[in-house]
């Protein structure tokens, strides 16, 4: 529960603030899900796209059934990780992201789960394991040089090298107020019951 604040009272009663400020999200989880999907979409714009991946693998292996099945396994895992209500665009960009994350890794590590949680929020562990297996199968069918080209061509464009405002300004981090500041007020009374200056 929010602590009572002077500025809270000023917002409510002083008529000097915007009246429509909402500080309660009726469905905070839905908001987070929406953000995850937005992020997945952004990832698809900046990183490896599903279409690129499919194009490369089909060029290498045609439309063999095992290829199609592995791609389907990957999108199914992405569906489980991204969430039930995600659109096909979001699932595809999530699949491409999983490919980038798991490519070259045989197991799901802590590093991977952190990365996935950062992108999708909480997710079922077995879906990550399935995705990792599918990615490894797919990666095996792509020659190393093609795979390298596929994974690096997009990362070059996604780097934002613009300077962040304030990056060079000296900023002192938050620290709690020392309780010693007011200890002198208690000095004149050693009796605990007497209490500071209020007797």
């Amino acid at each position: 529960m929010a602590l009572p604040r002077l500025t809270g009272a000023l917002r409510a009663f002083a008529d000097v603030s915007a009246s429509d400020s909402e500080h309660f999200e009726p469905d905070a989880s839905a908001k987070l899900r929406k953000k995850r999907q937005q992020q997945a979409m952004r990832q698809s714009e900046e990183g490896l796209s599903w279409q690129q991946l499919v194009k490369v693998i089909k060029k290498q292996r045609g439309t063999e059934e095992k290829v199609t099945r592995s791609l389907r396994d990957l999108t199914q895992s992405a569906h489980d990780i991204v969430g039930e209500e995600a659109s096909s665009d979001v699932i595809e960009s999530g699949s491409a992201f999983l490919f980038e994350v798991f490519c070259g890794s045989e197991h799901v590590s802590h590093h991977h789960t952190t990365k996935l949680r950062g992108m999708f929020g909480p997710f079922p562990a077995n879906a990550a394991t399935k995705a990792c297996r599918a990615v490894n199968r797919i990666a095996e069918w792509i020659p190393d040089d093609v795979l390298h080209e596929l994974l690096t061509q997009n990362s070059k464009t996604s780097v934002d090298d613009s300077t962040e405002f304030g990056k060079n300004l000296k900023f002192h981090p938050w620290k709690p107020q020392s309780s010693e500041v007011y200890e002198w007020m208690d000095e004149e009374s050693s009796d605990e019951e007497a209490g500071s200056l209020f007797d």
């Binding site: 309780s179 500041v181 007011y182 007020m185 209490g195 500071s196 200056l197 209020f198």
Partner: peptide, 9 residues
């Protein structure tokens, strides 16, 4: 008590 001291100061 500390809070009230701080408030008084």
């Amino acid at each position: 008590k500390g809070k009230l001291n701080a408030a008084l100061a």
